[in-house]
């Protein structure tokens, strides 16, 4: 994010301790969103916090980063995953969008198919939210640096 990172020794060590747990917790919230509080939006925001902290503390040259137009492309891919799940059910013969009874992969209890479809769209929402937050930070930081309108 910044040209020069403003992390010291304490911030670097705290980053290495905190961020793996943050990311694992994000995946946990995504996978167990049906039993516990959370879901796709919260998981995406938690995953984005890892990248934001890496940019703030380790600087823009960190390995743990999402560069350039990748964030926009991945946000579009997340939205596409959501829509694709709906199209799968439509092509399976459903009467309305996201009717999980008509998923192409048939599992024996019906609620298993519901759980799988909801999990697919939650993954799409998580990817879209994570990449949109990173893209927002890109837009805030880079405004005025390219065309020099501010400084």
């Amino acid at each position: 994010m910044m040209k020069e990172p403003f992390g010291g020794l304490i911030l670097n060590v705290a980053f290495r301790m905190l961020v793996p747990f943050t990311i694992v917790y994000g995946v946990y919230v995504l996978c167990l969103g049906e039993f516990s509080p959370g879901g796709g939006f919260q998981a995406g925001a938690l995953l984005a916090v890892g990248v934001l902290l890496a940019r703030l503390i380790l600087g823009f040259d960190t390995k743990f980063n999402v560069l350039g137009k990748t964030s926009v492309v991945m946000a579009g891919l997340g939205t596409f995953l959501y829509a694709f799940t709906g199209w799968l059910t439509i092509f399976g013969g459903a009467d309305y969008f996201l009717n999980y009874d008509y998923m192409p992969i048939v599992l024996e209890p019906k609620h298993e198919m519901h759980a799988m479809g909801i999990f697919l769209i939650e993954i799409g929402v998580a990817i879209c939210v994570m990449m949109t937050i990173i893209n927002l930070l890109d837009a805030i930081v880079k405004r005025g640096e390219d065309d020099g309108s501010v400084e």
């Binding site: 994010m1 509080p37 959370g38 879901g39 939006f41 919260q42 925001a45 938690l46 984005a48 916090v49 934001l52 703030l56 937050i133 927002l136 930070l137 805030i140 930081v141 405004r143 005025g144 501010v150």
Partner: peptide, 25 residues
């Protein structure tokens, strides 16, 4: 409502980062 509380906690952190980042300009 732990769901809303969780969302508020995460978004509060991210919005603070955004405010501080926009202070450079």
């Amino acid at each position: 409502s732990p769901d809303v509380a969780f969302t508020e906690a995460v978004i509060g952190t991210i919005s603070t980062i955004f405010f501080v980042a926009s202070l450079r300009k």
